[in-house]
């Protein structure tokens, strides 16, 4: 284990999240079992006060998790200069068996907490507090990936081995049979590109039809297909190298940190798309998230499409 300042910062914040998360969990537990909006008992009075505490804590955790996710990726990126063989965050993340799960959990938690806050927003803006019980029941489940993430992160940093030689992204994301992605390479790259634009088309259609269920499904599909097509097709144009496929090197200085912008657009777009739709299924209030979602998704598509286009215009050939 190496204690670089960045790792200590992450672990310290993890400890705080763990403590506050436990407090919120206990609150959620009590509310989930004893909440009764019609009762006038002292217990209900205490619970309604405590629901504030739970909400404050969850807001705090989410507000910090957002920049911390970028900081985590950045930290693993800087660690790649110490660990032999790693050239970007991909190598460091995969130097530990569960590194990929950690990243996925982090992302999942961001989405879950974001949805929770949307629900909370709908709840407190209604004088009857219709979702208080529901949101704390949900938190009971949402907290589990949070605790799992913290446990994984602690064991991730403690089992990082500096002298172990790891694979770089060049081998992790190659068509070779032993990589994660080999399954995806069976399908031709152009099919993924077609799927990518196709799913974007479906989201556009869903915006037009204002069909909430379709919006949720199409945004979820768009998110998954966008990441796969980014790895398989678009990243090669960012690096201008037909063999270099990596979702992490985008975040490095050599590519002007373009990955941070790309991922922000993609995650914000799909989050608002799904969250807004879920919310409008619950509450009657009109919330204009779909426009935000549309804007971010379109920005992402324009930006990522610009890379192959510019490459083609400059060189006259496709990679």
């Amino acid at each position: 284990m190496s204690l670089t300042p960045e790792i200590i910062a992450l672990l310290t914040l993890d400890a705080i999240f763990c403590f506050l998360g436990l407090v919120a969990w206990v609150v959620a537990f009590r509310i989930a079992f004893h909440w009764n909006a019609k009762a006038t008992t002292p217990l209900q009075y205490t619970l309604s006060k405590q629901s504030y505490l739970g909400a404050i804590i969850i807001k705090y955790i989410f507000m910090l998790k957002l920049p911390l996710f970028a900081f985590f990726i950045y930290t693993t990126d800087t660690l790649s200069s110490i660990i032999a063989g790693a050239m970007c965050a991909a190598g460091v993340v995969n130097s530990v068996d569960f590194g990929l799960y950690l990243t996925v959990f982090k992302l999942l938690n961001l989405y879950l907490f974001g949805f929770w806050l949307l629900l909370h927003y709908a709840d407190v803006n209604d004088e009857k507090l219709p979702f208080t019980r529901l949101k704390f029941v949900l938190f009971l489940f949402f907290a589990l990936p949070l605790f799992a993430e913290i446990a994984l992160e602690v064991s991730f940093f403690s089992s990082l081995n500096i002298s172990k030689i790891v694979s770089c992204c060049g081998t992790l994301f190659s068509a070779a049979s032993d990589s994660y992605m080999s399954l995806l390479f069976v399908v031709d790259g152009y099919i993924w590109v077609g799927l990518f634009y196709g799913s974007f088309g479906i989201t556009l259609l869903a915006y037009g039809l204002k069909n909430q269920l379709l919006l949720i499904a199409s945004n979820a599909l768009f998110l998954i297909v966008a990441i796969i097509s980014l790895i398989i097709f678009f990243s090669t144009y960012v690096y201008e190298l037909p063999t270099h496929r990596c979702p992490f090197c985008l975040l490095q200085k050599d590519y002007y940190y373009v990955g941070y912008a790309l991922y922000t657009f993609l995650f914000a777009g799909t989050f608002f798309g799904m969250g807004g739709a879920v919310l409008s299924l619950f509450s009657k209030e009109k919330i204009r998230f779909s426009r935000l979602s549309l804007a971010f998704n379109t920005l992402y598509v324009l930006m990522i499409s610009a890379y192959p286009m510019v490459y083609f215009l400059r060189n006259g050939v496709w990679l």
Binding site: S2, L3, T4, P5, I7, I8, A9, S81, I82, I162
Partner: peptide
């Protein structure tokens, strides 16, 4: 790099 990370890490702890 290890030495300095260690030293500042030690201080940080």
């Amino acid at each position: 790099q290890n030495i300095f990370d260690y030293k500042s890490g030690f201080f940080l702890s």
